[in-house]
Design a protein around this nucleic acid. Sequence first.
DNA 1: AATGAATGAGAATTCATTCAT
DNA 2: TATGAATGAATTCTCATTCAT
Lengths: 217, 217, 217, 217
Amino acid sequence: MLKKLSEEKLNELLECGISEFAEHGDRAKLCDIAKRADMSVGVIYKYYADKDAFFLACVRHSLSALENALNEMTAKADKPINYARTIIKTLQYFSATHPDYARMYYRITESSENAAEFAEEIEGFTSRLYTQFITAAQESGDIRQDIDPGLFAFFFDNLLMMLQFSYCCPYYKERFKMYGGSDILTKDDYVTEQLLKFMESAFTFEHADIRHRNGEK
Amino acid sequence: MLKKLSEEKLNELLECGISEFAEHGDRAKLCDIAKRADMSVGVIYKYYADKDAFFLACVRHSLSALENALNEMTAKADKPINYARTIIKTLQYFSATHPDYARMYYRITESSENAAEFAEEIEGFTSRLYTQFITAAQESGDIRQDIDPGLFAFFFDNLLMMLQFSYCCPYYKERFKMYGGSDILTKDDYVTEQLLKFMESAFTFEHADIRHRNGEK
Amino acid sequence: MLKKLSEEKLNELLECGISEFAEHGDRAKLCDIAKRADMSVGVIYKYYADKDAFFLACVRHSLSALENALNEMTAKADKPINYARTIIKTLQYFSATHPDYARMYYRITESSENAAEFAEEIEGFTSRLYTQFITAAQESGDIRQDIDPGLFAFFFDNLLMMLQFSYCCPYYKERFKMYGGSDILTKDDYVTEQLLKFMESAFTFEHADIRHRNGEK
Amino acid sequence: MLKKLSEEKLNELLECGISEFAEHGDRAKLCDIAKRADMSVGVIYKYYADKDAFFLACVRHSLSALENALNEMTAKADKPINYARTIIKTLQYFSATHPDYARMYYRITESSENAAEFAEEIEGFTSRLYTQFITAAQESGDIRQDIDPGLFAFFFDNLLMMLQFSYCCPYYKERFKMYGGSDILTKDDYVTEQLLKFMESAFTFEHADIRHRNGEK
DNA sequence: AATGAATGAGAATTCATTCAT
DNA sequence: TATGAATGAATTCTCATTCAT
């Protein structure tokens, strides 16, 4: 039963860790995290070998939340453009409700040390998710055949990652405002549709007569 | 005349600072930087108030190099697709020759503290460059009218930033390989053309009749 | 009746304490001791005020074992040389069967704090045992009269203490091998006879006519 | 020239380290050592990798002082009994003038970790010194032939080590008083002669007629 | 009575910054 | 002006001790 309590407390601890790591990167202080969670530093070391191990646990905790969010909505995938819209909106919602989780995601990538291990663990899910989807969409004729599905997924994910950072990380938020105007962070739907347009035919003006009716109307 | 000497030395110091900050983020140690530049920590404090000020100087130094590289190339901009290709290739070349500069770029964005100040200083150049170009291209009818030029520039820059990170930062390099295969870092032209295709018509299969004039006019 | 159970458990606890203190000195951790004894730290505090008190209890436990071993053997004391041989062999056997007890003995002497209290409690038994025996041997004419019996006992005990350390403590074991060869730890009888010879007439070469009745009478 | 200063300061630091390690074993705190030396903790880390490295440096410093003391007087070795007397007196003097150095010696032996390395480094000098001397004394007929010179040296050194501890370490001082009386620490010459007698013919009463005139009269 | 999770003071170590030379 | 040794505040991690269950 003490176990039970720990379970809850542990989650709270991870949440606090995520907040602090999101805010300060690995300059986050364990004693601050503990204080924030209204516990003592000792508990952290009861459950995790050291600061790195605890950081990794925070990373995993935040990732699984993101994966859950993405998993929920991928069921209702249909047309690529709608699939993309759903993902964008999911990430917007996720960024709004869990800003620290997304910032955490950014913090991971700072470390040079375990780059390869981390990358596989962290990107594995989405890279497979996107690549599979795109391959399927190519097979069903919904996406042009002459693009490398892996790289297509890569560019797609790049746009989504940057979008998340732009909603959550201080620096990227400022940058977002520079490009989109100071109120851009409140115009989610507008951003979504613009991004879809961009992905649809960024540099192909001469085909602007194309009418995909991307959701609006 | 001592100024002259310092000028050179200072440049060397900044280069070393960039390398160390690129490698270790703000865990980079001033004494290591000084040692690498074959100077004493004292000089750093002679010219800069503190570590933050020195970091900012390193940022500026690496930025101006990037801006110079971009300025040179973008003069000869013609069709948007060629303009994009030129920028991509410039960044690829820049990433290959100055990997630390791009990593440095990434390091800047870690700090929450001076996000706003940094963003204006750092992104100002490219955001204006891209937005102006896109606006001009829209006016001359080369890019569809129904996209917000600011956001268009934003997405465009997002793709380019991620591309740079993917060529320079350990974590992103690994991620790049996961999407593109273990030899993707050596296939610059392939990546360029794929990215152009993506930007051209990512989700627009049904219009595959579009001529993919990828540069060869 | 719970007392009964505790009695057994307590002994086990002390044994584990002795092992850990022998191994780690006062860096031994109470939680490790408890774990080793398959109990909780709580019990230690149920029976002992603090770590020091528990350490003292471990000391007493190991001492009484040594005293019992010595008591058994020394009853049958006859000629001094045989008495000495008996003690040496007893300590060799004790060191082999209870290495931790002897190492524990060594650990006690590290602390400056309670030196005086400890010394009386710990050395009282043997110092009296040896001094009495030597005095008696002097009275019965078996040992030269012109030696201070206390100091004689002191030197004698010094040799025995060092012998024990040399069989049990890592550093002293290595040192033993340096002097006696790498297999010295397996040559108990040889060591015994050499030590007896040493004590018998260390610097008395010119009287080598002395009968070296080394026990076999 | 700053080097020169450091040299001195470094010695002072080592002296302070020796005092603190002698007093508290490895519970000695680096910050206390630094404070005692009127320096900052930082200096210790400038010169030594970590606490262990600094401890080892203290050990070496104290050992070389002991070796110097022993070296000085071993030149004038003649008869074994005088040689032994000289060594005993040297150690008594050394213990009186450098009590911390001798306690330091004791501290070394606490560690299980690097027992073998330490033993060779630390005991090498004296073990070779004593064994060589004894072998030589056997060859010249001054010491009985039927004793293993290595073990003889071992027992001899054991007595000397214990004597040193007995003059310097709190616990052993108390023990010494128990055996020799409360004023034994002030009766150096008496102890010397008693120890010589002990070594001369401990259990050889029947040859008490031997007259070596050990210094007195 | 027994448990063992939680506490938090304490100790090692790092590194930006200063300042005597 | 340049140096780099020295400083010491700040941070990680440990473990004796407590106390709710």
